[in-house]
């Protein structure tokens, strides 16, 4: 199978994720879309590692996973806190910092 197809798949997943971030209001779904984008880039990294015949891309993919894990920990905590205080998980509602 042509490894370039993995790249096409990664692009499609990334665009889906990006559109999801832009159009969805629910913070949890937005969060999942971000995860989707991160994993799309992971897929691209791994595909490039295969294409280029070295493991640099695979190493970076691990780093991205670590970052994603940390992000989930903090991001979920933030979302849960906001939900507790404001009874809503919509990303459009928390605009108190706006002047």
């Amino acid at each position: 199978m042509n490894p370039e197809n993995y790249l096409y798949l990664a692009s499609i997943l990334f665009v889906i994720g990006a559109v999801g971030v832009l159009v969805r209001r629910n913070a949890i779904v937005v969060f999942m879309c971000i995860e989707l984008m991160l994993n799309a880039s992971n897929l691209a990294f791994v595909a490039f590692a295969r294409l280029n015949g070295n493991i640099d891309g695979q190493v970076v993919a691990f780093f991205v996973m670590v970052v994603a894990a940390a992000e989930v920990v903090i991001g979920l905590a933030v979302i849960v806190t906001i939900f507790r205080t404001r009874r809503s998980a919509s990303v459009d509602d928390p605009n108190l910092l706006k002047l």
């Binding site: 990006a18 937005v30 459009d92």
Partner: peptide, 17 residues
């Protein structure tokens, strides 16, 4: 300039994109 700060997270995301 302040008008740019709409407070909508998704519009920030759009400008980042």
């Amino acid at each position: 300039l302040r008008r740019w700060q709409t407070g909508f997270v998704r519009s920030y995301a759009l400008s980042m994109l």
